[in-house]
Design a binder for these strands. Sequence first.
DNA 1: AAAGAGCACAACCGCGACTTC
DNA 2: TGAAGTCGCGGTTGTGCTCTT
Length: 414
Amino acid sequence: MGRHSCCYKQKLRKGLWSPEEDEKLLRHITQYGHGCWSSVPKQAGLQRCGKSCRLRWINYLRPDLKRGAFSQEEEDLIIEFHAVLGNKWSQIAAQLPGRTDNEIKNLWNSCLKKKLRQRGIDPVTHKPLSEVETSDERDATSGQTQDKVSRASVELLSHLNPQISSSRTARSSKNSNLMAPTVSKGTIADGFVSNHQENSMMNICSSDFVDNFSPQQLNFSSSDSRFSNLWFTQTGKLLGSTLFPDFNSNVMSTLSPPSTNSFISTATMGMDFKPSDAVPSANSTSSASTGTADLHHGGSYFGNSLVSWGLLADCGSPDKEGSTSIHPSDMHQPGDFKWAAEYFQNPLFMAAALQNQAQQHVSLYNQIKPETQFVPDNSSSSMWDHLQGHEFLDNSSDTCVKDVQRLTALFGHI
DNA sequence: AAAGAGCACAACCGCGACTTC
DNA sequence: TGAAGTCGCGGTTGTGCTCTT
């Protein structure tokens, strides 16, 4: 394997792209989509390898790319995400619409690392430099201090969502829809969710609520797009829905007090931050201290990691760009799920991604692939609109059962 | 004014994972 | 089942601009 075979071929241009090449590539992809990257240069009349074309498109030509300098809020977010994800640039980039992994990586290496050091923070561990130096002395023999925290964090996150365990694995989602339902198969719960934690989830879900949901009843599978957005515990209890943020925020927030020992329930409570509570407007990002929740997990992985739920919630401001809806029944093909899967691969941030960024991506998706517009299905739009409305789920736990039954009916309807 | 150091950014490289045949 | 092809990630290098001496 290794190096792409096309790279060995002669007569392929390398180096900077000319405006003519850019135009050719842009025109080709706008018209036909990229399809198989290795065939793009030939079809577009370019003397480049497919990899080069792909990179140029992703890092420079994509129409949704933001231009210009990073804002202070973006920089803060990158630092916070880096503390959790480490050098997983593509995952960090997925949380910052319009920014590429390459761009973020360059910013980090050229600027943010320095800024952190100036603030007395080690850019690798995100701990105070003095503390790191001390631990380095202790750990001098192993040489394993580097990236320990971030790797541990990723490992923890990988338990939450198997897609994060390997970005390679996550990429396989292009043919397998969202992987969330694998939770029910024990992937997340295995060895991670303690009885206490699962009890917390049981608290989250009232007994009636749980009783009304079993995997058998729902008969969901990862190949069934209608149910691929529901999150379940190992025993089939419903944790939430990535397609219905209101379902998460309303159901979850009303049923469980925060559990200081349960990462999942803490994270879930994070969803309880509503944009309207945390920030004054959709576009003005709150300060990093607004609505922060210390994701402390037994004094280990997240001891030093502050994730600003206020910021995340801000990203999740609903209806920021109108009322475009994605109808689940419109998402027939695995490819249709690709963008969404990449967005929702991180359960910590999926709520934020859902409420706002997904809508941006619908717009983008429609720009790029106008032939496959997401158009609300008229036949069920009233149900869908109703679902989107806050009246669909009220804040009473007693009505959750009814809400779930209505949700079930809706799925059946769809 | 010129040289070179520093910097930011774009692009390339090597690799692992996955898919296809 | 394994080789070949493909994709995409993270690390590294190249290039051009700006600043400093």
